[in-house]
Simulated assay, not measured.
Amino acid sequence: MKENSGLPGKRANLELLKIVTDLGDEDFFMSCIKYDENIAPTNTQGEFVAMCGVTGLGKLINAGKLDNFQLMREFASDSRWRVREGVAFGLQIIGEKNFDILIQGIKEWTKGNDYEKRAVVAGLCEPKLLKDRNNAKRVLEILNEIIESIKFISDRKSESFRVLRKGLGYGLSVAIVGYPEIGKNIFEKLRDIVDKDITWILHENLKKNRLEKMDKNWTDKMKNASA
């Protein structure tokens, strides 16, 4: 697994990650997450092992082991970005099987730190999870809550805020496409908030082709209004 991890390098072997997650069991995943930052720093083969373990926690939650939500929450703030991605992948695994359990499990994360909020954004803003309009509606409400919370964030130079802002810069448009009528309304209300980072997030989403494909006239209107 280590030898075929793709690390060190620019891209981890996500195909192998899926295979490992499909085949792994609880003992295996728990052994993988022991590869912490000290013995498996960023861009090492060990980081891939940890990533596999964290992703696999989603599979364990699907098997009814809900206590692993707390472990996933802790790893959402890991110093290694690939491990944080593993949390997002794990959340998507849960959402594909039981979206209600996913939403309930991350309810408190939306009030947590910036890394935790970013994990929520990355985990939920996945097109395959938003084909159901009820799911998309719930995600849009969560994103709206997270974006509005930015008004109360004082430290905006931290790495955690940077990745949260970046995630919101694409995630909102993914959710809007899932339920355009509600999504466009939320977007337009967010435009009324005077906050440079919220404005940046909205501008970034307007650059995404998915919004033009959804409704070019509305997207052009929003672009012109913010020009």
Results as ranks from 00 to 15, higher is better:
residue 206 L to V: 00
residue 133 R to L: 13
residue 92 Q to A: 11
residue 192 D to H: 01
residue 164 L to G: 01
residue 197 D to P: 06
residue 146 I to K: 10
residue 219 T to G: 06
residue 140 L to D: 04
residue 122 A to H: 06
residue 99 F to C: 04
residue 42 T to N: 13
residue 5 S to I: 09
residue 155 D to E: 13
residue 12 A to G: 14
residue 40 A to D: 02
residue 58 G to E: 02
residue 160 S to P: 09
residue 26 E to N: 01
residue 179 Y to K: 08
residue 36 D to Y: 01
residue 184 K to M: 15
residue 213 K to L: 14
residue 106 I to A: 11
residue 216 K to I: 14
residue 177 V to G: 08
residue 100 D to Y: 10
residue 216 K to Y: 12
residue 124 L to G: 07
residue 196 K to Y: 09
residue 115 Y to W: 11
residue 12 A to D: 05
residue 16 L to M: 12
residue 30 M to P: 01
residue 210 R to E: 15
residue 10 K to N: 12
residue 109 W to S: 07
residue 170 Y to C: 02
residue 89 F to C: 03
residue 89 F to Q: 07
residue 112 G to T: 09
residue 52 C to E: 00
residue 25 D to P: 05
residue 58 G to N: 09
residue 194 V to C: 03
residue 127 P to R: 05
residue 153 I to C: 03
residue 43 N to S: 04
residue 149 S to R: 14
residue 48 F to W: 11
residue 52 C to I: 02
residue 147 I to D: 07
residue 184 K to Y: 09
residue 82 R to K: 10
residue 62 N to V: 12
residue 222 M to N: 05
residue 82 R to D: 05
residue 138 R to L: 13
residue 181 E to N: 14
residue 227 A to M: 14
residue 77 S to T: 12
residue 184 K to G: 10
residue 202 L to F: 06
residue 43 N to K: 02
residue 48 F to C: 13
residue 204 E to M: 13
residue 203 H to V: 00
residue 172 L to E: 01
residue 166 K to V: 07
residue 138 R to E: 14
